[in-house]
Amino acid sequence: MITAYTLDGTSFKIQPLDLAAELPANVLWLDILKPSEDEQHWMKRLFVEEMPELDELDDIEASARFYRDKDGMHIHSLFPQRLGKEIDGINVLFTLRNNMLISFREDDLGLIRLLRHYMRQDRVEADNAADLLLEILELKIEYISDLIEDGYKTLEQTAKQVLHVTNLHSTMADLMQQEDGNGHIRLALYDTRRALRFLRRSLRQTSDEEQRRWIDEMLYDIESLLPHTQFLFDKINFQLDAALGFTSLEQSKVIKIFSVAAVVFLPPTLIASIYGMNFEIMPEFSWKYGYPMSLLMMLASACGTYYFFKRKGWL
């Protein structure tokens, strides 16, 4: 699916691209999502050198994520997206060519839908493709900030669950999801910082003062958000250690009960073993009160052991 965004004065017009028609002269953005075979054939005419492939979106080396060629300036950007309780990372390739932005992605992205909603309400102020790209990156940073705030709220809830030792298995699963999501957030922040620095270098000759100030403000926001992700990592690890400690403590209590029970019943077992020996000469065998006396001795020895443990404070 290819969606064309054309700028009409200060408003954006959004419509699916007609592959049979000519590309509109005032198109500012082409958003390509999971292109069909016909759309891929059309894209080959759009790119001068090599058309991007879906399997190239996840490359991590800088030379594959930020570069220039005859088609323009290319930026691979990682976008975090919440799916239920989990946070996943989606890579998007942006190509900035003259005054047209081309985005190429294989998954639906909530930020693109949000930007489209803002465009319909005339809330996006972009005079050129570079402004539009910066607008997308700014929305990305704001969304990451919201995810970090949600992370703090989630950890407040899990802290109460760990403290009251309620459903620790579910709590540890939530903490593991939070740790994985925070990793995607931190990776997206580093990736966005690299992209903005590449943009600042590449647009040094063509960008105006407002765009440079805009980039510097976003870089400052990223630097202020990174310590929060590190704090979340530390807090998650602390709660995981606490949950594991409480789990070990509960297991120790169970083992302690079995250990005490074994020690308490050790003296009665010893007495029963003595009188269970099959020697011919054992005086108690012919004693009239031998059986009740042995039961009394076993009960007394068990109670005495339990009282000793209780007095020592081991129970």
Rank of each mutant, 00 (worst) to 15 (best):
P268V: 07
N278I: 10
P35R: 09
F47Y: 02
W29I: 00
E106P: 00
W314M: 10
S207Q: 03
L175E: 07
E106R: 03
E223Q: 15
F285P: 02
D58Y: 14
Y190E: 15
G313E: 00
R113K: 11
D221T: 04
M51F: 01
A25E: 14
F231H: 04
P292C: 01
P283E: 09
L225I: 13
L199M: 15
E284W: 13
L101I: 05
S286V: 14
A262V: 00
N182E: 06
L133E: 04
L78H: 09
F308M: 11
R45E: 12
T247K: 04
G89D: 02
Q177D: 12
D88K: 04
G290E: 02
E250C: 02
L219G: 03
E250A: 11
L187K: 13
K253W: 08
S170D: 15
E61A: 11
R193G: 12
E53P: 01
F246L: 12
K253N: 08
M176E: 14
P292E: 02
L299S: 14
M1N: 09
F198T: 03
L33F: 11
Q15C: 05
L155P: 07
L175N: 05
A62Q: 01
F233Y: 08
F47G: 01
T192D: 04
F198K: 05
K310Y: 12
L199Q: 04
T171L: 02
D174T: 13
E125Y: 11
R213F: 13
K310F: 02
